[in-house]
């Protein structure tokens, strides 16, 4: 699922009431998982809320809504921000990677991040960041068939990666697992991570 599709989703209780909508996605400090969401009120002109939603309180996340048990699932928004910082202690970028340049450890520029791909099982404890959608750089586009400069491609991520304000460092082998669409991307991520773990 693309995180851009999560923004503006309504937050709905099991009782069927919409109590908020997603404003921003908070990533844990190392960018490896979604720690929660900041919220806005419902409606076009509603402002941000003082409450946020931790991922651990999410009952279900789908194409049309974020489901929570009831209003008590919302925590002060500072708790969400703190969770984003404390997940690995570094508190690096707060997780905003959009526009960052993706570099391989071999020094190749793959492109710029335009969206973040997450994967989760509803009811599980973690919402894992598994990849980035990038605007392909010239060098990557030249290697990928049917891609041109600026084509959007999906790059799988290892479990952990180095993030600075402007660069994301991925293993050079990630290049081999770039895929064009979301269907089948999950398999590419698994294959890529298995290969990093040294499994065949």
């Amino acid at each position: 699922m693309r995180t851009s599709e999560i923004s503006a989703l309504p937050v709905v209780t099991l009782a069927g009431d919409d109590i908020a909508q997603v404003k921003d996605i908070a990533f844990s400090g190392n960018g490896g998982a979604v720690s929660g969401f900041t919220l806005a009120g419902r409606g076009r002109f509603a402002g941000p809320l003082k409450t946020g939603l931790l991922w651990t309180k999410v009952v279900g996340l789908g194409a049309d809504a974020v489901i929570v048990a009831d209003e008590s699932a919302l925590d002060p928004v500072d708790d969400v921000r703190r969770a984003a910082e404390s997940a690995d202690g570094s508190g690096a970028s707060g997780g905003n990677v959009l526009g960052d340049q993706v570099l391989t450890d071999g020094g190749t520029d793959l492109g710029k991040v335009v969206d973040v791909i997450v994967q989760f099982d509803n009811g599980s404890s973690a919402c894992d960041v598994v990849g980035y959608e990038i605007e392909a750089s010239e060098s990557l586009a030249a290697k990928a068939s049917n891609a041109s400069n600026g084509t959007r491609l999906l790059v799988p991520l290892p479990d952990t990666l180095a993030v600075s304000g402007e660069h994301l460092m991925v293993p050079a082998s990630a290049e081999g697992f770039v895929s064009g669409d979301l269907a089948g991307f999950g398999a590419a991520v698994s294959a890529f991570r298995a290969q990093l773990d040294g499994k065949p």
């Binding site: 309504p10 709905v12 209780t13 099991l14 009782a15 069927g16 009431d17 919409d18 279900g60 809504a65 489901i67 509803n122």
Partner: peptide
């Protein structure tokens, strides 16, 4: 059926 509210009817998946 799980709930009926202002926004939606919520059912178990």
């Amino acid at each position: 059926l799980l709930g009926v509210g202002s926004y939606a009817v919520v059912v178990r998946a």
